[in-house]
Design a protein around this nucleic acid. Sequence first.
DNA 1: ATCATATGTAAGTATTTTATTACATATGTA
DNA 2: TACATATGTAATAAAATACTTACATATGAT
Lengths: 106, 106
Amino acid sequence: MIRFDSGDELLLVLEALSNPHRLKIIAVLSEGRQYVSHLARELGISRPLLYLHLQKLEEANIVSSDMEILETGQAAKYYQLNDFQFELNEKNIHDLSSSLTMKKKK
Amino acid sequence: MIRFDSGDELLLVLEALSNPHRLKIIAVLSEGRQYVSHLARELGISRPLLYLHLQKLEEANIVSSDMEILETGQAAKYYQLNDFQFELNEKNIHDLSSSLTMKKKK
DNA sequence: ATCATATGTAAGTATTTTATTACATATGTA
DNA sequence: TACATATGTAATAAAATACTTACATATGAT
């Protein structure tokens, strides 16, 4: 069960989830870990684009990655879903809203 | 308890939630219904901007609105939070991912 | 050596989202 | 009438996000 320590952290997770590709990635990874190139083929998107989405998921702590050597001897970067489950309701949004920063991104 | 009938609907809600202003709006409305101009002053943002955010929340069915006549005789548009609570986990994302459209927005 | 596999990223473009400015209309009060 | 309140929206600008193209490196197999 994810625990949000601040509104900013909640927002980071919500932003990571609000994209169809990233929801698909989560769906695929829920069936098991997978490496980047394979994932890209399965999702039908380019690897650079997949990287971008995986980064956002990783920054939000929804997935994590490990390098591993395939049977062929080549290096592969495996991604897996971190245990991920949470509940949202008016109360916890209210409680977290005070620790919500309205700062610009860049 | 919100029930998502499709991945697209889930995404709509997640997109509506992934903005600090909109989370603040939800937090304020969780304390009671309020009309637009008052809300804008409370949040410290312009009314046109607030409109934009309220529209997104309304499209996602998170809030709803009613016109009402103030004691002064003027019309006011009141917004209230719809009962709002849901749980997210790998399983329901997996289940909903098949009904996720990857279409462009406009 | 060439081909297929893998990771990694920089640079540029396109699209979407967010925000501002400037209006319009209407009601009530001084 | 002039001022304060309210809603509503169009047009534009700015910022953030998403996506593509083009590379680089490395491993193993043919």
